[in-house]
Simulated scan of single mutants.
Amino acid sequence: MSENAVLLVNLGSPDSTSVPDVKRYLREFLSDDRVIDSPKLIQQFVLNCFILPSRPKQSAEAYSKVWTDEGSPLIVTSKNLQKLLQGKIEPKVELAMRYGSPSIPDAIERMKSEGVKNVFLVPLYPHYAMSSFETVVVKVMEEVAENAPDMKVTTLQPFYSDPSYIEALYKSAKPYLDNEYDHLLFSYHGIPERHLNKADSTKAHCNVVKDCCTTCNPAHSTCYKHQVTKTTELFVKRAGIPEDKYSISFQSRLGREPWLTPYTDKVLEELPAEGKKKLVIMTPAFVSDCLETLEEIAMEGKEEFLEAGGEEFTAVPCMNEHPAWVQFLADKAENWLKSSSAVL
């Protein structure tokens, strides 16, 4: 039995489209201090008085639009990715979700019972954000410290600028870029603006220095906005897309506080008036199609764009199970195995 294992972790999904299941999922998700990082009393007041009374029903209706016979698209795709990766590498490949099931504690318990000593943790997020990458790493490390203290964990760092990741992203998107279009929109998941400042270790760069995203600084290692900007820059260079033919926007905001702008829904309403009526849209912050890509973008976003005068709307699928993406993960796992972190 191998002492090495790879642990893939994605966001998660409700167990079903029923309102109770969605409510349970949202309660866990939005109770995370790295998602809603207000003081606990305020967080729970907002959650229980303003969000949970109405949002589960709305979200359940949205999930029902994308649900498959096999279940949640995110879970189904993640399980398929797990199987494909397992076919390429020797160590056991485990899968967990930050919220919901399969859970991180259960995955760690399985690995512990199987004698796993070394784990390669792969948060399935290309970019750093406290509400995505960081919360996965913290949760895994907390569970390991409490229940498997002898287990060594090595984490794949954000790979937003990795040439092999950019190549995989390009290969998965290329068939959709080969057709004629007026504009390419990169829609990234949004975060509150204050999360940028909170993640800035220098406390003197993000939103302080002019052109902070393109001015080299140690803060970039934990700056979501810099990292999505870099991914876009490298992708358009690889794809040969001119500067006047693409832009960046941010989706999925929650609440009334300022989030990263411009907002995707607003951009979709504005583009047709600028003569950009044939649109291709990508969502590189997501590696697996989910509610935010399938319902918010491919359904609602398309409707907003066409109602504003757009003529053609093409949503590029996430990398999902694309061979280049699977190979990227396999190569990272093999490199880990060759390092001193794993026992061969």
Score class of each variant (00 low, 15 high):
1 M>P: 11
3 E>I: 09
6 V>K: 03
9 V>L: 12
9 V>Y: 14
11 L>Q: 04
11 L>E: 02
12 G>W: 13
12 G>Q: 10
16 S>C: 07
18 S>M: 05
25 Y>H: 02
27 R>T: 07
35 V>S: 15
36 I>V: 15
37 D>R: 03
39 P>Q: 04
41 L>N: 03
42 I>M: 04
42 I>H: 01
42 I>G: 01
43 Q>H: 09
44 Q>R: 08
47 L>T: 02
50 F>V: 11
55 R>I: 07
59 S>N: 04
63 Y>W: 06
71 G>E: 04
71 G>K: 04
75 I>Q: 02
78 S>H: 14
83 K>T: 08
83 K>L: 13
87 G>P: 04
89 I>W: 02
91 P>H: 05
91 P>V: 05
92 K>Y: 14
92 K>H: 11
97 M>H: 05
99 Y>N: 04
99 Y>P: 04
101 S>R: 09
102 P>Y: 07
102 P>R: 10
111 M>S: 01
112 K>R: 12
115 G>Y: 12
126 P>K: 00
126 P>V: 00
126 P>Q: 01
132 S>P: 13
132 S>Q: 09
138 V>E: 07
141 M>V: 02
145 A>W: 02
147 N>Q: 11
147 N>S: 05
149 P>Q: 15
151 M>T: 00
152 K>Y: 15
152 K>G: 14
153 V>L: 12
153 V>A: 12
155 T>M: 13
156 L>G: 04
158 P>H: 03
159 F>C: 07
159 F>Y: 13
163 P>L: 04
164 S>V: 15
166 I>K: 01
166 I>Y: 01
168 A>R: 11
172 S>H: 05
173 A>S: 14
174 K>V: 10
175 P>H: 03
184 L>Q: 10
184 L>S: 12
187 S>L: 11
190 G>H: 15
195 H>R: 06
195 H>D: 12
195 H>T: 09
195 H>Y: 09
197 N>Y: 09
197 N>A: 09
209 V>Q: 14
213 C>E: 12
216 C>D: 09
216 C>E: 15
217 N>R: 13
217 N>L: 15
220 H>N: 02
223 C>E: 00
231 T>I: 11
231 T>R: 06
235 F>P: 06
241 I>W: 04
242 P>A: 10
243 E>K: 10
253 R>C: 03
253 R>H: 08
256 R>V: 15
256 R>W: 12
258 P>W: 01
258 P>E: 01
259 W>F: 14
264 T>Y: 01
266 K>F: 11
266 K>W: 09
271 L>W: 07
274 E>V: 05
279 L>N: 01
282 M>K: 05
283 T>R: 09
285 A>Q: 09
287 V>Y: 02
290 C>L: 08
292 E>P: 11
292 E>H: 11
297 I>Q: 15
299 M>I: 14
302 K>F: 10
306 L>F: 06
314 T>H: 11
315 A>K: 15
323 P>W: 02
323 P>F: 02
324 A>L: 00
327 Q>S: 09
328 F>L: 08
329 L>M: 14
332 K>P: 08
336 W>L: 00
338 K>G: 13
340 S>T: 06
